[in-house]
Lab assay of single mutants.
Amino acid sequence: YKIYPYDSLIVTNSISVKLPKDVDRTRLERHLSPEEFQEVFGMSIEEFDRLALWKRNDLKKKALLF
């Protein structure tokens, strides 16, 4: 996945969300650098992957990456 800054990946309720063209809309968190991922989620990507799907989705919603 290509890395993008968190600010360019957050999704708000506005209709005209302009995400970069090559971003996987269903896995926005994968486009964060490991350092920024840790900062946003408070855990590593590996720890995040071990969580239940509902928990990952809940965290993504709170981080505006859903």
Rank of each mutant, 00 (worst) to 15 (best):
N13D: 14
L9C: 02
F41W: 00
Y1A: 08
K61Y: 08
A52M: 07
G42H: 13
T12M: 15
S14Y: 04
L9Q: 00
M43Y: 04
Y4F: 07
E36I: 06
V40S: 03
L9T: 01
A63T: 06
K21Q: 14
Y1M: 10
G42N: 14
G42S: 11
I45K: 07
Q38V: 12
K62Y: 07
I15S: 15
F66T: 07
L65E: 01
P5I: 03
L9V: 03
K61A: 08
L9S: 01
M43S: 03
E46R: 10
S16F: 13
L19H: 08
I10M: 09
I10H: 04
S44R: 13
I10A: 06
T26S: 13
T12Q: 10
L9N: 00
R56P: 02
E39G: 11
P5S: 08
R27Q: 12
S33A: 11
E29Y: 02
L28F: 02
K55C: 09
F41Q: 00
K60L: 05
E47R: 08
H31R: 01
K21I: 13
L64S: 10
E35T: 11
T26I: 06
L32V: 03
L19Q: 06
S44I: 09
D24W: 05
R50Q: 14
D49C: 06
E36N: 07
N13S: 12
F37A: 02
L59G: 01
S14N: 14
L32E: 00
K55L: 12
I3V: 12
E29W: 02
E39C: 12
E29I: 01
D24L: 04
P5M: 04
A63D: 01
V11H: 08
D22M: 03
K2L: 09
E29Q: 02
E36W: 03
K60M: 03
P20L: 05
K21P: 15
K2S: 12
D58G: 09
V23D: 01
D7T: 15
K2D: 07
E35L: 11
L32F: 01
I45P: 07
L53W: 09
D7M: 14
F66M: 10
L64W: 08
D7E: 15
D7N: 14
S33H: 08
K61P: 00
W54T: 13
S14V: 12
S14M: 10
R25T: 10
R50K: 14
T26G: 11
A52G: 09
E47S: 10
S33N: 07
V17M: 09
D49I: 05
D49M: 08
H31F: 04
